[in-house]
């Protein structure tokens, strides 16, 4: 087991290098730092000095890959590639283009993101599985038919509409909770409850439909017939046999997104003004802060790979057929 994990972590390294090189190409080779500077300073009448100044302040003045003007190892380390890309491997994100410490920002903003993403995930899972079980129990009846129709309708509505509509209805018309904002500690609940509910509702359509398919796929398998031949009731078959088998893909599907919960939800957070990593990313995109976007790309890849690893491990925990080798 440990050897397996060690090997998976080793496998992750070339992938992270790939991500790193890709972002380097995208951010520094496709467009030169000069372009970025001009973009940031505004298009018209930018003096070369201002550009130089801007680059100097943010460390973009170094050569890309090889610095001939210094001696020894610094020839390689005093470069944009080393300073900006390689250092990401040590989780040194450096400072943003506006001068803030990205690492600190991330560690601060991670918690509001989790405070909203975790309840959405857990409650959503519970709601979707229960609803899907209900549909599976009443399969091939009108309840099944109309539930599927409802699911398709719900998943055809843009997530933006749930947010805008929910905000308007609950906050603006009914004045139940504040429209947006955030607070610390227990006070945050009144800010979190609406986005969490909307997140759950927005996920019901696709989630329930997917789980229903999983359940129905299991219901047609031979072992279910065996269970019925034992004289088990339909409920016992569903909960004792079908659910156990269907939970394997459900759980492993959840595990893969667990680490990504840290990244937060872009749209929800920015609509509700929650200072998480999602709105951090959006703000960075809108203000064209490349350092932050770069850091988030790398962080996202690391978390994704972590998710893959956790998925494999969770398989061995829930599925007796799988052994790591």
């Amino acid at each position: 087991m440990m050897a397996y994990i060690a090997r998976r972590i080793l496998y992750a390294i070339p992938i992270l290098i790939g991500v790193n090189v890709l972002t380097f190409l995208l951010f520094f080779v496709l467009n030169s730092p000069d372009d970025m500077a001009r973009m940031n300073l505004g298009q018209k009448r930018v003096t070369p000095e201002a550009v130089e100044n801007w680059k100097q302040e943010r460390g973009y003045h170094l050569p890309l890959l090889y610095n001939a003007s210094v001696q020894g190892a610094a020839r390689l380390t005093d470069t944009i590639f080393f300073q900006k890309s390689v250092k990401l491997f040590q989780f040194e994100f450096g400072s943003s283009d506006s001068g803030r410490d990205i690492g600190y920002d991330i560690s601060q903003r991670m918690w509001p993101s989790l405070a909203i993403a975790v309840p959405v995930l857990l409650v959503g899972l519970l709601v979707n599985i229960s609803y899907a079980l209900l549909i599976a129990f009443f399969r091939a009846t009108y309840i099944d038919f109309w539930s599927v129709v409802l699911c398709v309708v719900m998943m055809s509505i843009s997530g933006l509409f749930y947010i805008i509509g929910g905000q308007y209805l609950v906050s603006k018309l009914l004045h139940l909770v504040p429209i947006s904002g955030y607070d610390t500690g227990f006070n945050s609940i009144k800010f979190l409850i609406l986005p969490a509910i909307i997140g759950v509702i927005g996920g019901i359509g696709s989630g329930t439909r997917w789980y229903r398919t999983l359940f129905l796929e299991e219901i047609n398998k031979d072992y279910v017939r065996t269970a019925r031949a034992k004289g088990l009731s339909e409920r016992a078959v569903l909960f004792g046999h079908v659910l156990k088998n269907a939970l394997i893909p459900i759980l492993t599907g959840v595990v893969v997104v667990l680490p990504l919960l840290f990244m937060g939800s872009l749209i929800t957070e920015s609509f509700f003004g929650i200072p998480g990593l999602g709105s951090y990313t959006i703000d960075a995109i809108n203000s064209q802060d490349f350092a932050i976007v770069r850091s988030m790309v790398f962080l996202g890849s690391v978390l994704y790979i972590l998710g893959l690893l956790l998925t494999d491990i969770s398989y061995t925990l829930v599925d007796p057929r799988v052994r790591l080798s």
Binding site: T23, L26, F27, N31, V293, R294, M296, V297, G300, Y304
Partner: peptide
């Protein structure tokens, strides 16, 4: 796949805008 889709799109579109 390991790069979150939105971020990859964001990065690419930002670069396109600059270009």
């Amino acid at each position: 796949n390991s790069i979150p889709g939105v971020l990859l799109i964001a990065a690419a579109i930002l670069m396109l805008q600059i270009y």
